[in-house]
Write a protein that binds this DNA or RNA. Sequence first.
DNA 1: CATTATTGGTGAAATATTTCACTAGTAATG
DNA 2: CATTACTAGTGAAATATTTCACCAATAATG
Lengths: 209, 209
Amino acid sequence: MDLSDNTIERICKIFGYLNFLERSETKLVSSRELAKAIGSTEYTVRKDISFLAVGGYTRKGYEVKSLKQELGNKLNLNKKRKACIVGLGRLGSALLDYEKFQEDGFEIVAGFDCSINKLERIQTQIDVFSDNDIKEIVCLREIEVGIIAVPPQSAQDVADKLIGAGVTGILNFSTQKVIVSSNVIYLNLDFTNALRFIAAKVMIQKAKK
Amino acid sequence: MDLSDNTIERICKIFGYLNFLERSETKLVSSRELAKAIGSTEYTVRKDISFLAVGGYTRKGYEVKSLKQELGNKLNLNKKRKACIVGLGRLGSALLDYEKFQEDGFEIVAGFDCSINKLERIQTQIDVFSDNDIKEIVCLREIEVGIIAVPPQSAQDVADKLIGAGVTGILNFSTQKVIVSSNVIYLNLDFTNALRFIAAKVMIQKAKK
DNA sequence: CATTATTGGTGAAATATTTCACTAGTAATG
DNA sequence: CATTACTAGTGAAATATTTCACCAATAATG
């Protein structure tokens, strides 16, 4: 059966909220509450969940712990996954120590930069290496996801190296779109585009009135 | 007429690509090329554009400059818009000097943090202030968009302050969803969720085989 | 100058997604 | 213990979105 990207994204958000509920020791949650938390409707939430999980207790809602377990199993969100960051400028080095990744099942196990100078001066607990070591370290440490935080002109080159080394997913923070083979999952988080989107929606909202 | 969020997002990406083409002095671009650049289809690109702009020259494609102008006018992407960043931790201060914002029509005109200590030590060209000054500075400098980069537990509080001060849009980098009134455009960029999404899609792709 | 090839525009068809209406189950209530 | 109220599951309806097929325009070609 095929899950749409929208469904996958919502389930990921639901998973994050379940994480939060679990930490605050909440036992049960309704489809309505989940919908509110992720900005959707109860119908859609129920449908999304029904694609992947079985049986909430009627009249009570879903059991937080088992739902999280079940969704996590189906979407590979339970076990810790390893990632690395390429490009240790301001953004990259901020991400390197981004604690949230740890809390939520990701482990940054390496950083890379092409500048030896930067590698020497950077202060972090994470091991850092030269770009030239990407292949070796990605294989050795079984890194699944590569996070790209380099200037646009190097983005494609870095992506090629990461894919050549065997990552299955790429998260690209650079503004440069990169082309990846179809067996690699690719996501671009472009801040500028996010701001554009907001500006556009503001405009449209104003125009309506 | 109503533009879907998907359409708006694609148009924003197209706009970014047109920016790039303009810088490299390309005069014309086809719907097929645009589609490839933003990861969509030529049909969808043509339809999206037809909602907003008139007349590419047949057999030649769209004229880069005028298309950019026209889309920008309709979606308010031409004039510089002002934004501020609240929370000057590693991520926030990285964003503060993110040159890309400048290049693409956004201007970061203030940073805020609740820690006087941080404000004193930070090195940046941008003016920085205490959280308490949000109201005053946002009004004074006519800031339209607030970027939230504070720890989750303060996110809602900061959002309330920004909205109280009059911003029309919020870009939230914290993992905490915040609730905003319906006249404010809200977007959450949650890195953790992005990684989850990639992990999930990797899983689904594997399962297919 | 006629023909051909390429491109955008656009209504219609196809597909995908969301919403709804209804069912069934179960805890709470009196 | 019967009734009520609330909740998830789910097929069908409604809606939204994407894709397609075809037209019109125009530049290139011979």
